[in-house]
Each structure stands twice: as structure tokens, then as C-alpha cells.
């Protein structure tokens, strides 16, 4: 008994209580602001909550989830989420890495790129969506619309036709967030040890070999982290799409996030909207789980 009391002695005396005092407010706030609403969300996904027809409200069991299974719009939204996330993350990483490698070769003026790259990142996604919707893509006004016609192509209704609308929202997202990948890769490249490259040069590795055998493996942690962070953001993208297309035309750019939102706040069917949001949460956790699993280098690789 005395031994137990003693163990808490010395430098650790009162440590746990102090730690609890420090963490309690933050954790309590998180419990109240995040966990409680989340529990409420799960609860409401088992309810019929329709502000348009409140007389029908009540416990629905798994009916919302059954409905979801047979809901073509859900599967469509899910597919779009996949396309949107995979393509925008791939583009961000590829362009960001390419640009970073390029800028690393430029002897002076790297700071200009850093400054320019910061700008899209700090802009509100909703403003980015609005800028693109109007200044870049609007028919007979936007710069891209003008360029397309000037180059002699047929005018494209970027935001009004299904496939161009999907491409547009992917491009907008890629435009805003590629600088993020670029800046992370630039910083990681700058922190790579120079002597490794000198050694590789002495070993007569050419530029491509150096990239493939040295740069890429050393950059791997940064790449994986960027993929994880960007995938999370892509899955939850909202404001830019909402501002640019509103998910339209029809449901052409309606990723799951938007579908859940519209179901709740446009159709006022909060029960089903909740179920859709729960589905998105599950997907997010699954994706991040897989990505985190990939991130952790396994033993096999270490010993190989």
C-alpha cells in the first residue's frame, strides 16, 4: 500500500492530478461539442425527422439505412465522391511534386513561388468557388470560357453540363489545394540530406535514378501524409462545390457530402440526411484507417 503511494512521489508527485486539471476543460468541451452531436446524429439516423412533414416523425429503426441501400442517388453520390477524391488527390500530389522538383532546381526566387502558393490556401473555399464560377467559367464572361473560344474550340457550358461540371469542381479543388502539396514537398525536399545525392552522383546514378532510388523513398513519408490529409479534405469538400455548382446540374457534381446536406436542409428530411452523414463518417474512417495502415512501414520492408 505504502509502495503505491511512494511511486507517485518524487518528480511525479501530483502529476496525474495536474494533467487531469489541464486536459479536463478541453476534453469536456470536445465531449460536449463533438461527441454529443455525433451521438445525436446517430440517434437521428434511426428516426424519421422531416421538418416538412413533422406529423410523420418517430422511430424508424434501420429504415433510413434500408432506403439508402436502394437509393440510386446515394450510390451515384458515393461514386462521385470516389472519383472526386481519387482524381483531385492524385492531381494534387502529381502536380505538387512535379512543381516542387522544378522549383528546387531554380537557383533564386523560390520565395515568389512560396508566396504565390500561400494565396489559394488561405482563401475561403466558398470564395474560390465563387471566383471560378464567375470570373473563370461563366459563359461569355469567364477567362477560361474566353480562352477556349479564342483557341477555336466550341464553347463549353462548364458548370451547366454534367461532365464538364464534375471536371470543373475537381479542377477548382485541385487549383486551391495543389499549393499545399507543393509547399510540403518543397520543404521536405529542402530538408533532404545533400550528401546522399553527392554519394549517388559519385556512384554514377543519373537524374532519373536519383529521383527513383533516393528522392522518392526519402519523400515517401511526406507523400503519404499529404495523401492522408488531402483525402480527408476531399471527402469533406463542401463550400467550393456548393458555391460553384451546388452539386448540379441535377446531381452531376453532388458528392455524398452535398447529398447529405441537401437532403437535410433542402428537402428537410433530417432522418435520412443523418443516415447519409453517418455513411460518410464510416467511409472517412475506413479510408483513413486504410491510409494510416499504409503509412506505417511494415517489418517486412524494414528487414528486406
Amino acid at each position: 500500500m505504502q509502495g503505491r503511494v511512494n511511486r507517485e512521489g518524487g518528480v511525479h508527485q501530483g502529476e496525474t492530478r495536474f494533467a487531469l486539471v489541464l486536459t479536463a476543460p478541453g476534453i469536456l468541451v470536445l465531449l460536449v461539442t463533438t461527441t454529443f452531436p455525433l451521438a445525436y446524429l446517430v440517434w437521428s439516423s434511426f428516426q424519421t425527422i422531416n421538418l416538412a412533414m413533422p406529423f410523420l416523425d418517430g422511430f424508424a429503426g434501420v429504415q433510413n439505412y434500408v432506403d439508402m441501400w436502394y437509393d440510386a442517388r446515394f450510390w451515384h453520390a458515393l461514386g462521385l465522391t470516389g472519383i472526386y477524391t481519387v482524381s483531385s488527390v492524385t492531381l494534387q500530389v502529381a502536380i505538387g511534386l512535379g512543381l516542387a522538383l522544378m522549383v528546387m532546381q531554380i537557383p533564386a526566387g523560390q520565395w515568389i513561388f512560396r508566396i504565390v502558393a500561400i494565396l489559394p490556401i488561405v482563401l475561403a473555399p466558398v470564395v474560390v468557388g465563387l471566383f471560378w464560377r464567375t470570373l473563370m467559367l461563366a459563359p461569355n464572361f469567364g477567362m477560361i470560357d474566353f480562352l477556349v473560344q479564342w483557341l477555336g474550340f466550341e464553347q463549353i457550358n462548364w458548370l451547366g453540363a454534367p461532365t464538364p461540371a464534375l471536371i470543373s469542381v475537381i479542377v477548382i479543388h485541385t487549383w486551391q489545394w495543389t499549393p499545399f502539396a507543393f509547399l510540403v514537398f518543397l520543404a521536405s525536399l529542402a530538408s533532404l540530406p545533400g550528401d546522399v545525392y553527392e554519394a549517388a552522383r559519385i556512384d554514377r546514378a543519373n537524374a532519373l535514378q536519383r529521383f527513383w532510388h533516393i528522392t522518392l523513398p526519402l519523400l515517401r513519408p511526406a507523400i503519404v501524409i499529404v495523401i492522408i490529409m488531402r483525402a480527408m479534405i476531399s471527402l469533406h469538400a463542401f463550400a467550393a462545390i456548393f458555391a460553384a455548382t451546388g452539386g448540379g446540374p441535377g446531381t452531376a457534381s453532388e458528392i455524398l457530402n452535398l447529398y447529405a446536406f441537401k437532403t437535410s436542409f433542402v428537402e428537410l428530411n433530417f432522418g435520412y440526411g443523418s443516415a447519409l452523414a453517418v455513411a460518410l463518417l464510416v467511409i472517412t474512417m475506413a479510408v483513413s484507417g486504410i491510409l494510416f495502415y499504409v503509412r506505417t512501414p511494415r517489418r517486412r520492408e524494414a528487414s528486406a
Partner: peptide
């Protein structure tokens, strides 16, 4: 567990919060 909990709360999609918050 608390550390994981904090991390996990970052994964909650905003739409999954805006719905219950609106109701609450």
C-alpha cells in the same frame, strides 16, 4: 485512448455535425 479520441474527432465530416447542431 484520449489521444486517439482527439484525433478521431478530426475525422468527423462537418456535414455530420451541422445536421445535429441544427436540430439541437
Amino acid at each position: 485512448s484520449i489521444g486517439f479520441y482527439t484525433l478521431a474527432t478530426q475525422m468527423v465530416p462537418p456535414v455530420g455535425l451541422v445536421i445535429p447542431y441544427f436540430l439541437i
